[in-house]
Amino acid sequence: MALHRDDVIAAALDLLDEVGLERLTTRALTERLGVAPGALYWHVRSKQELLTAMADTVVAPAFTTPGTESGKEAETEAEAGSWAQHTEAFAHRLRRALLGRRDGARLVSGHLVPGTATLKSVEDGLALMSAQGLTPAQAAVLGHAVTSYVIGFVLQEQQEHAPTGEAAGPDPAHYPLLLQWQTEHPGPDATFTAGLTLLTTGLAAQLA
């Protein structure tokens, strides 16, 4: 069976889930695919190009709003919610996409070069928010802030946990408020949503 570029990217993402970004090598990928290095480089000219393609594949679901494949459906979807609702929905899709792959946030933060489809989705998002009262500059700043927030949040979620034991936590005698926050922590989902809401309500207040 002939090897295709999509096969290479899919295999690389599966390998990423198994070994992590640090141990992802083109040699391991060629062994997994059962091909010579030359066959791999026919589809991706370098490891950097491979990582870029992987990152673009990871974030693709975040830039696809369900039910907006046609222009008419897209218009209906755009009218169904406010710019804040659309922004928050995008942020949740992006977080799910990054969490869906081991080291997903590290991969995307270091290697994403938006492709044509992603850029078109960004342009559509800016148009939607502009139609709802934001200037293109306000929409772009919000989009950048939200994307950076999501990637940073997931980077923390996916980082290695501190070793358990006496040195793993703060001394309650020195950090009582920090210890209280850790004890009452609502969990990553609620914390993520709360931070995201701060961003959208902050812009809403500024607009008002």
Rank of each mutant, 00 (worst) to 15 (best):
V150D: 07
A55G: 02
G143R: 13
P186N: 06
A167G: 00
G133A: 09
T118N: 03
Q132T: 08
V141F: 04
A60K: 08
R95E: 08
W181I: 12
T147W: 01
A53Y: 00
L196N: 03
H92K: 12
H92I: 13
V58L: 02
D14V: 07
K47W: 01
L24D: 06
L119W: 01
L40T: 08
A140R: 12
F153A: 09
L29P: 05
Q138L: 12
L177S: 11
V150G: 01
G125V: 08
Q85C: 00
R95I: 04
V58Y: 00
E31I: 00
L196W: 01
E77W: 15
V8Y: 03
V122A: 14
A78F: 03
S148N: 10
A208Q: 14
F63P: 02
V141Y: 01
V59R: 01
L107V: 12
D17N: 15
H43N: 12
A39E: 12
A74Y: 10
L21P: 04
A208G: 15
P37V: 12
A205N: 09
L16D: 03
Y175P: 01
T76I: 14
L207Q: 15
Q158K: 09
E184L: 15
T26C: 14
W42C: 07
F90M: 13
L203I: 12
R27H: 09
A167D: 13
R32Q: 13
L33S: 04
K47C: 05
A194D: 12
H161P: 06
T65S: 07
L13P: 04
R102N: 11
Q48M: 03
L179F: 00
H144A: 15
K120L: 13
L51R: 03
D56L: 04
A139R: 02
L40N: 03
L126R: 13
H4P: 00
L179N: 13
A39R: 13
K47Q: 11
P172G: 06
G100L: 11
A117H: 09
G71I: 11
G169E: 09
L198G: 14
L16S: 02
V35R: 03
L29V: 11
D103H: 11
H185A: 13
F90A: 10
S121Q: 14
L142S: 05
F153R: 12
A194Q: 14
E77L: 00
A53M: 08
L112G: 05
V59A: 04
A11R: 06
R32W: 03
R101A: 04
H185C: 07
A117G: 09
G169R: 14
A204E: 15
V113A: 14
S82V: 06
L155W: 02
